[in-house]
Design a protein around this nucleic acid. Sequence first.
RNA 1: GGUCCCGUGGUGUAGCGGCCUAACACGCCUCCCUGUCAAGGAGGAGAUCGGCAGUUCGAAUCUGCUCGGGAUCGCCA
Length: 604
Amino acid sequence: MYKNKNCGEPNSSHIGSKITVAGWVNRRRDHGNLIFIDLRDKTGILQVVFNPEVSSKAHDTASNLRSEWVVQITGDIVKRISGAENQSISTGSIELQANEINILNKSETPPFEISDEIDVDDQTRLAYRFIDLRRPKMQKLFALRHKVTKLIWNYLSDKDFTHIETPILLKSTPEGARDYVVPSRIHAGKFYALPQSPQQLKQILMVSGVDRYFQIARCFRDEDLRADRQPEHTQLDLEMSFVHQDDVMFLVEGLYKDITSQILGDKYKQSDTDFIRLSYQDSMDRFGTDKPDLRFGMELITVSEILKNTESNVFNNVLNQGGVIRGIVAPKAGNYDRKKTDELIDLAKSSGASGLVYVALDDNLDSIKNLTDHNYKSPLKKFLSTSIVKELSEKMSAKPGDLILLAADKENKVNTVLSNIRNFLGEKLNLYDEEEIMFAWVYDFPLFEWDEDMKKWEPAHHVFSSPKKEHLGYLESNPGKVHADLFDLVCNGMEMGSGSIRIHDPSIQKKVFNIIGYKEDEINDRFGQLIKSFSYGAPPHGGMGLGLDRFVATLAGEKAIREVIAFPKTQSAQDPLFDSPNKISDDQLEELFISLDLPDEPQV
RNA sequence: GGUCCCGUGGUGUAGCGGCCUAACACGCCUCCCUGUCAAGGAGGAGAUCGGCAGUUCGAAUCUGCUCGGGAUCGCCA
């Protein structure tokens, strides 16, 4: 070993001992005769002093050191002179008095400082990810990620789960997302596809009698990126045999509580209570989304009844066409100026609304009961009499000084718009503690959704979820009424994972495929292997897929999962460090029987 | 595919028609300095303002296109 101690370890109990450390020069403070080096490794920072009276040779070497050089230093741990202690580092009471220094490697001046404070452009960070990852913050994030996966392994192992790896080179089973594909050399013109998730494989493993499977699995989807989406993401994939919905939920709830409390300790307030459970319908009614942020209230209220007799075309047209008017109350936002209300309206429009109506309630009012014409503002004021506003306020529990926001449109649009506004305002108005973690279950999803454009039924989640027994009768007569044993884990307004009890009866599985409109040969091509396995004794089973990147990012208080992925891609799915994707040689193409047919290069 | 924000020395920002021969902080280089820890002091190097085209007497600054980054809608079983 080049070292017998890590930089962050020595403390006053080591005073007098001789140690050897190795690491990176974080900073040099050269006083001419006395040189201080902050030596950094993943455990922390150690101050090293070079005194010419101790070793003039080491001192000479030290005077040439630069940032990020890699050095090995031997010396004595000594107590710092009084008054020179540094509380901000773990080794602040002592320092290493260097006798000997050995330069292991020099370094170019790095493109940016290795520091937690600085805010560097993402592309530069990724192009120099090896330096970016040296930052203590990044080291902590990856230590956290490791800890989470270790807790997963421990917890699930204790519950008799077996970790099984499934192939990355598989087959295209187009179910929604675009596949990443890999050409086959041995089979001309054929392609593997990278799995969007190990869904079919884990179900087949249940047929194989594995009973309880999990995998920290890479999943690939060739879709556009977001802060919380990468082309390859990691999923905690698990599946259990002979279980009902509650069994899976109970297990995952235990796991997530365990991890969250071990990571966050007392900061995790939900550890002693059950996760909130909301039916899909309830969630849509109250929050307009199937992934509500439950750290704050501000629920959606339907007010169509109150507004059905106004003279306003905005409202009447919508109501006549079967739409609804729903609203939310932004507490203490009644003083919003034009700029701020415009911002809300823009947000509503970008969410697909034709507009957003606000009613601002005056602050200088003791009670809504005494509301007069002077006490509220609204662009639709001439249609909103005092009595209507009073009634609205009462129905919506709005108080003086609040801002009522109303959206009128088809129900699903109203829900989308208001839930986006709700999330926006929740953050803007500081309605919750940003560090809080609030898990919830949303369950009882419909199995199918009607796709208006394609005029056909689509699987609301995925095609393998089991219809509820009591709804089996609707399967052919009224697919929209069929609910499934399907459940999502949500946290702070994000979907953390999705699970279901699966269909294990090949005949029901085929019915479901038929409703979605898959043809027989298509079914055989995509799902033949699964259906075949089902005909050899499939146990009832169910499981979940849970986004690991999102979970770790949430625990760390990060919004972008790039922060918890060692080598992520940019929004255009490129890696600036490796410069991938990239061309391959003509020889490689030839071997794969591939000839390119590229769009014309734009004329320069 | 759409919308929005951003692109100025190595890094982060300022400048937003002529005061710009581009400013500031950090970093970098040289020298001085025995207790600093965002060390200090003195001096110095380094960007033609993402690219292209246009408007203008004059463009970092205005316009268009384009490239790149980010956010988001679509998309993501």
